[in-house]
Design a protein around this nucleic acid. Structure first.
Ligand SMILES: [Mn+2]
Ligand SMILES: [Mn+2]
Ligand SMILES: [Mn+2]
Ligand SMILES: [Mn+2]
Lengths: 152, 152
DNA sequence: CAAGTAGTGTAGCCTTGGCTACATTCCGCG
DNA sequence: CGCGGAATGTAGCCAAGGCTACACTACTTG
C-alpha cells in the first residue's frame, strides 16, 4: 500500500470520458434507491394530515401494492430513521421524516407546475412528475422555480 | 366467469381518489423497470458507432459497474429481443434494439436541451437528465420540443 | 508458437421490492 | 362479553441488479 514503487496516481489532466459517464449513471442509481422512501414519507405525511394516522392498509391502497410490501418498506423506513411504528399501530414520521416529506411535497408541486407551464396536460404532468421528481437536483429545482416566477 | 349473477363491474362514475394515485405510482414503477434497458441500448449503440462493437468491459466501465453485472444485463436484453451476442464476442443491437436506442438518444438530448434552456448548468443538466428521461412521456417530450422550438 | 494478460463466463452471495398464503391481533357490534 | 371480519404480521417465493471469487478463452507479443 505504502510502497513508493507503486505509481501514485498519475492524476490525469484529461479524465477519460467514461469516468463522467459512469458518475452520471451512478447518480441516477442513487436517486432511484431513495425514490421509494421519498414517495412513502410524502404519502405518510398526507395520510396523517387527512386522517391523523397512516395505516398499513391505506398505504398499500394508495401505493397500489399489497400490504406485506408496505410492511417491508416501513421496516426500511424505520431503519433509515424516517418513521416510527409499533405493531398494529399506525406509522408516524420522525422529525427527519417530516422534513423529507415537506421537501418532497414541495418539489413534487414544483415539477408538476413546471410541466403544466410548458403545456403538458395536468393528468400527464402528474403521472410524469411522480417519476421525474426524484431525479431533479436542487440546482435544477431552483431553475424551475425561477422560470415559474418569471412566467407568473 | 360467465355467471350472470356476478355483479358485472359497477362502472363507478367517480373513481376513488386512491385509484388514480396508485396508477401514478404503478406507472413510475413500470418506467423504472425499463430505464436500465434503455440506458444499455443507448450505450451499446454509442459504442458500436465509436468502435464498431460493444464489449462487455467497455459497457462495464461506462456504466460504472462490474463485468458480471453487465453480463446479467445483457442476458436480460437478449431475452427482451433487444440485442444479440455470442460468447466472447461483442454485443449487437437487433432492429428493435436499434430503434429503441435512437428514440432514447433523441429523448435524452431533448431533455438535456430543455434543462439548459431553463438555465440549468450543462453538467447538472446531464446528470439530472440521465434519471429524468425515463419518466418523460411522449406527450411531455413533445411539449419540451415545442418549447425549445419557440425559444430558438 | 507459447506465454501471459486481458477479457469473458459462471457460481454464489446480498438487498430491494414485488407477490401469495397463512397466522395472529384488534375492534366494533350484536 | 365475546365473536367475526378487517387489519396486521410473518414466512417464503421470485426477479432484478448489485457484488466478489474463481475458471476459462482469446489475443498480443516476445
Ligand atoms: Mn414520486
Ligand atoms: Mn411525488
Ligand atoms: Mn438514463
Ligand atoms: Mn440517457
Amino acid at each position: 500500500m505504502t510502497d513508493p514503487d507503486t505509481v501514485p496516481e498519475p492524476a490525469p489532466e484529461t479524465l477519460p470520458d467514461s469516468a463522467e459517464t459512469s458518475d452520471r449513471f451512478a447518480q441516477a442509481r442513487t436517486a432511484q434507491s431513495v425514490a421509494l422512501l421519498e414517495d412513502y414519507v410524502e404519502l405518510i405525511g398526507d395520510l396523517i394530515a387527512e386522517h391523523g394516522e397512516a395505516r398499513i392498509t391505506d398505504l398499500a391502497q394508495r401505493m397500489g401494492v399489497t400490504h406485506p410490501t408496505v410492511t417491508k418498506a416501513v421496516a426500511r423506513l424505520r431503519r433509515e430513521g424516517l418513521v416510527i411504528s409499533r405493531p398494529y399501530r399506525g406509522v408516524f414520521l420522525t422529525d427527519s421524516g417530516a422534513a423529507m416529506a415537506d421537501k418532497v411535497r414541495a418539489r413534487h408541486r414544483t415539477v408538476v407546475s413546471l410541466l403544466v407551464a410548458l403545456g403538458v396536460p395536468p393528468e400527464t404532468a402528474e403521472l410524469d412528475a411522480e417519476g421525474m421528481e426524484h431525479h431533479v437536483s436542487e440546482v435544477t429545482l431552483q431553475a424551475f422555480e425561477a422560470y415559474l416566477a418569471r412566467q407568473g
